[in-house]
Design a binder for these strands. Sequence first.
DNA 1: GAGTGGCG
DNA 2: GTAG
Length: 197
Amino acid sequence: MDGFRFFPQALDPDAQAALTAEVLTLVEAAPFFNPVTPGGKPFSVRMTNLGPLGWVSDRSGYRYQPTHPVTGRPWPAIPAVLLSLWRELGGCETPPDACLVNLYRDGAKMGLHQDRDEADFAFPVVSVSLGDPAVFRIGPAGGGPTTSLRLNSGDVCVLSGPARLARHGVDRVLAGGSRLIPGGGRLNLTLRRARTA
DNA sequence: GAGTGGCG
DNA sequence: GTAG
């Protein structure tokens, strides 16, 4: 997968713990909600966002919006450490304007999809894994054979260039593999530039 | 259970 | 249409 870059253990255990604590504190003001597809089917992951814009899905469709769908308040700010990861590993000077926070509890998964709700695909997607390991799947943008990859806590993935529109998803989460998240599970932080610079 | 994929 |  040209354009797909994998940075194992980009965050050491102390940095993982600090980031997890910071994100969980921030999202107290923007609680995880239960999204549904435009067809009304619930996702198995729970979601919230950080930053000027947040990705949401409901019966009206997929979109980025500046406020939490339940509280109506703006999303909390993106932590500085994530802005640094975006710049250093994503190689992008323009900062992200959205950070989707997906919480995978027992049995949660994410079907194969593309991130294509952003205005300019020249900007990368930077994904940070925290907590339980996940079996990630990725394949070409145009369809075809996929490969699977285990994502551990502290790993960072970058989708850019030809891989920016890669199909990807999470087949399953390996429960109990980490004690990082209270109550267990996996937290995935996905940084994106939703609007043009 | 694993892999693939409608999809614009 | 949609990450189900």
